[in-house]
Amino acid sequence: MPAVPDITLNNGVTIPQLGFGVFQIPPEDTGQATRNALETGYRHIDTAEMYGNEKQVGEAVRASGIDRDEIFVTSKLNNGAHEPDDARAAFDQTLADLGIGHVDLFLIHWPLPAVGDFTRTWQALEEIYRSGRAKAIGVSNFQPHHLRRLLETADVVPAVNQIEVHPYLTQDDVRAFGTEHEIATEAWSPIAQGKVLDDPVITAVADRVGRTTAQVVLRWHIQRGDIVFPKSVTPKRVKENFALFDFELSPQDMSEISALNRDERTGPDPDTFNMAG
């Protein structure tokens, strides 16, 4: 099977363009799911403090027998830890729970505009980055206006912005801002929690290329240049989701899928979501 391409972030760190997400996987199932992903060939795992399964991800990485430097691990700051001292303590706990020496990427999970000043939170992440315990830092769910505000005071430009992206929410404005400022886009909920898989346009493309609708949507993400990490606990689907690099969508396929955009979210709106839990 062809290798997963790497994307070089703005600080020179490389990240596999395809990863494995553990959002909504219960802790008791996370270890096996992560092991399955690593055995399939994934070398990029995306977790978060909020998911409650960092320990299990770390255990699977340590037990894999794969060199630590070959596995890219992302985690994210919990919403209740935006105060700088809280952010530092939360990161220390993430490192302890993962038990893998360092984090490859650490993100502010949500901007939480009504909760506090995320520019102060970012300063704490910059300290963590300078310490070498996180190889790169970034943000998640930031809109262009959040990013503009952050960049006014930041010494370090975020390496990535992880946002909800799928054919019903193409996020062209956020992605364009990222491209302009060399901030890579990562796509969460890449198949809209399954909502796009029965769409007639995507079904027709899948029939043309002889692939599943999920593979078509994930390939659409890859060809757009975004970093994507589908989630599944079913080994067959984990393998299917990895088989994206031996076929290609035509420009017509790509434009037909992109035209499905209707600015429809499956998750919260970053401008109104302020849960600090």
Rank of each mutant, 00 (worst) to 15 (best):
L197Q: 05
T170L: 11
H145M: 12
R175G: 02
L218N: 00
A184L: 11
D173C: 08
V196M: 12
A134Y: 00
R148S: 11
L150S: 04
V217K: 01
W188M: 10
W220V: 01
E152Q: 13
D155G: 12
I137F: 01
N161I: 09
H181W: 11
D207R: 07
P158S: 06
P144W: 06
D173E: 14
H181L: 11
V156Y: 10
R148G: 07
V139N: 02
T213G: 08
H181G: 08
Y168W: 14
H146E: 06
G138S: 06
Q162D: 04
R208D: 13
P144I: 09
A214C: 12
D207G: 13
T179W: 10
A187C: 12
N141C: 09
A176G: 13
L151A: 10
Q171I: 01
H221L: 13
A159R: 02
L218E: 02
H181P: 08
T153D: 07
I183L: 09
G178K: 05
F177R: 10
A159N: 04
D199K: 05
P200M: 13
I202G: 02
G210T: 08
A204W: 06
H166N: 06
D173M: 06
V160T: 11
H221N: 10
Y168P: 01
Q162F: 08
T185H: 08
I163R: 03
H221W: 08
F177L: 06
A134N: 00
L197Y: 11
N141G: 09
A154P: 05
D207A: 14
P190Q: 13
A206H: 05
A206K: 05
R149L: 10
S140D: 00
P144C: 07
V216Y: 02
E182L: 09
D172I: 06
Q215V: 03
R148V: 11
L197V: 10
G194R: 04
V205N: 00
R133E: 14
I163E: 13
T153N: 08
K135G: 02
R208V: 08
S189R: 04
A136Q: 04
I202M: 06
R175F: 05
V209G: 02
Q171P: 01
V201S: 03
Y168V: 07
V157Y: 01
V209H: 09
H146R: 10
D173K: 15
A136V: 02
G178D: 07
G138W: 00
G178A: 09
T153Q: 13
H145K: 12
R219P: 08
D172T: 15
N161S: 14
P167W: 00
V174P: 00
D173H: 14
L150E: 04
E182N: 14
R148P: 04
N141L: 07
D155Q: 13
A134V: 00
I183Y: 09
R148W: 03
E180C: 03
Q215E: 08
V205S: 03
Y168C: 10
P200K: 07
R211M: 11
T153P: 02
P200V: 15
V157W: 02
V196R: 03
L150Y: 07
E164V: 05
N161H: 10
P190K: 12
S189T: 15
